[in-house]
Amino acid sequence: MNLENTKAQMRKGVLEFCILSILSEDEAYVSDLINKMKDAKLIVVEGTLYPLLNRLKNEGVLEYRWEESKSGPPRKYYKITPEGKAMLDELKQSWQELITSVNSILSI
């Protein structure tokens, strides 16, 4: 139970980074985003994503536009902002640093 929690916490730490990463390539609808994350086994359920996207949008890192849908309610398409790009670059750097540090500890 505790192990699962730790794992979830680890994943959550990098969720933001991954979302920004995915969105840096192209704008995406939530379900596309979710599918990509699911494929990468980063998240299991969609629920986790909504509060996170909302917060990132409120921080000005993401923005969205509405698009009509044939098969349902209008969809929100999320896109990264310039601030988001800057943040992503910093995150990429610290990710590299983190990998190096963690690996150096693990190899002992």
């Binding site: 509060p51 909302n54 917060r55 409120n58 349902g72 309610p73 209008p74 929100k76």
Partner: peptide, 29 residues
Amino acid sequence: EIRSYLTSTEGKDEIIADVEARVAEMLQQ
């Protein structure tokens, strides 16, 4: 229940609206 978990979160209504939209979409399928 989701709403009650979000009480302290900023933008609760918007998140709920997003969730409802997604639910509607999935139900549509």
